[in-house]
Amino acid sequence: MGAPHGHKLHFHGHSWLHRLPAHVKLVALVAFMLTVVATPRDWYPVFAGYFLMLVALVAISHVPPTYLAKRMVVEVPFVVFAALLPFVATGPQVEVLGLSLSEQGLLGAWGLLVKGTLGVLASLLLAATTEPGALLAGLERLRMPPLLVQIMGFMIRYLDVVTDELRRMHVARESRGFSARDPRQWPVIAKSAGVLFIRSYERGERVHLAMLSRGYDGRMPR
């Protein structure tokens, strides 16, 4: 079972940023992201400004920077893609450390990387300072369709249940001598994913049944 407070992405605290209403933070995040994406990628000092702003917010929130850094790992596949760009892009070439790289590609990689990193950091900061429940309430206040909010609520509720199930399946596999290092055994992982999908689907049906039994008629009571 997780920590007594909120979710794994949430860092419990009482800072000004924690106490700010969720819908304000959500709007701020979206506005920030749109601004970052719209900024031309060669306005280097402006990006430094964005970054300093986020650093200041992190400092205010009292969320340890290492806590956020560890969770930045989600960005890795993205970084790999960005790192490939200078090698595959065409156009004028420049010499960097003895490698011939595309100028356009380098600029493209920088743009992707800096915008992606700023976005991920800002989103992590939002997740770290806002309880999932408050986030949903915020979305509701922002007039998000109730059905979508409900679906997200179910996702948060059952994320732990499903990850727990995944962990138990993992333990049961390993206990019977399975090793994920051996590519010949990888099909097993695909099958496990299939089983997990079916189990989750069936759980969805059981949850629906239990809801019907308490008088659910297709609309969430307000």
């Binding site: 999932p132 429940g133 949903l136 609520g153 179910f154 948060i156 509720r157 059952y158 249940v161 759980r203 059981r206 949850v207 049944l209 239990a210 809801m211 019907l212 039994s213 308490r214 008088g215 008629d217």
Partner: peptide, 21 residues
């Protein structure tokens, strides 16, 4: 609706029954 008020079923897996925040 009235029948479902009168008959309360507690299912085997509480995770199926408890779905709210």
């Amino acid at each position: 609706l009235e029948v479902r008020r009168r008959v309360g079923i507690v299912f085997q897996d509480p995770d199926d029954q408890l779905f709210m925040g």
